[in-house]
Amino acid sequence: MSPVVQLRDIRRTYRNGELEVHAVRGISLEIHAGEFIAIMGASGSGKSTLMNTLGCLDRPTSGSYLLDGVDVASLDREARADLRNQKLGFVFQGFNLLPRTSALENVELPMLYAQNRVSSTEMKRRAMAALGIVGLAQRADHLPSQLSGGQQQRVAIARALVNEPRLLLADEPTGNLDSKTSVEVMGVFQRLNEQGITIVMVTHELDIAQYCKRILVVRDGLVVRDEPVTGRLIAAEELKKLLGAEAAAQLTSAPFGAK
C-alpha cells in the first residue's frame, strides 16, 4: 500500500528582509495509513513549519510532497483548498474557532465549503455526529466563549473530522490544556485512530507522546530520531486512574467539607 504522505527533502526558509531563517532543512518522511505520530522537539525546531506544510497551509521552499500519491506542488490554490477541505483536518494550538459562532455552526463550516454540498439537515446531522464523537453533543449550541479550553479544542477536532479526512493534523492540541483534559483529548485521538484515521500531532510533552504509536524528534529543522512508542499509554485507562485519584482526594478532604 502506498503511503498517505511522502515527503522528500522538504525545506522551508523564512525571509525577513536580510535575515534568512532555515526552519526546515531537508526532511524526508513517509507516513502510512493508520499511523499515529507524535512530533517532538524544542521550541523553534521547526515542528509547526513542518505541520503547516503537511496541512497545505504553507508551501515549502523546495522538496516534494506527495499526498495520497498526488504531488501537492503541482496543484493550484483552489485544488489545494479542496485538498484541505476533503483530505486534511487541521487542529490548531489556538483552536481557531470562529468567535460568537455556535459549536454546531463551527463544525458545519467545512461542509459549507465542500465541493459536493449536502442538504442543511444532512449537514446538521453530520456535525452533530462529529460533536458526538468528541463528547460534546450536549453543547452544540454553545458559543466558544461559553466553553472551556478542552471543550473548544474538542469542537476544533470535530470540525477537523467532519469531512472524514485521510489525515488529521494537530499542532500542540494539548498545549493550552490541563493534564486531565489533555488525556481526554488524547482519548478522542486514540478512538479516531482505531477507526482508521491517520493522525500526526505535535507535542513537547513526553507523556502525551506516549499515547501515540510513533515518535519523531525534530531538532534545528531536521528529524534526528524516529522510533516506535514502547509502553504505549491508553487514555481510557489513564483517565480511570486519574478519576480514582480525584475521588480519593475528595474523600480525604471530605471531613473539612462536611459539617
Binding site: G55, A81, D82, L83, L97, L98, L109, P110, Y113, N163
Partner: peptide, 19 residues
C-alpha cells in the same frame, strides 16, 4: 484584523478565494 483571522480560518478549512 479580526476578519483577516476569520478569513485565515476559512481558507484553512478549504474556502476558495472567490468564496
Amino acid at each position: 484584523t479580526e476578519r483577516t483571522r476569520e478569513i485565515g480560518i476559512r481558507l484553512a478549512i478549504g474556502a476558495h478565494d472567490r468564496d
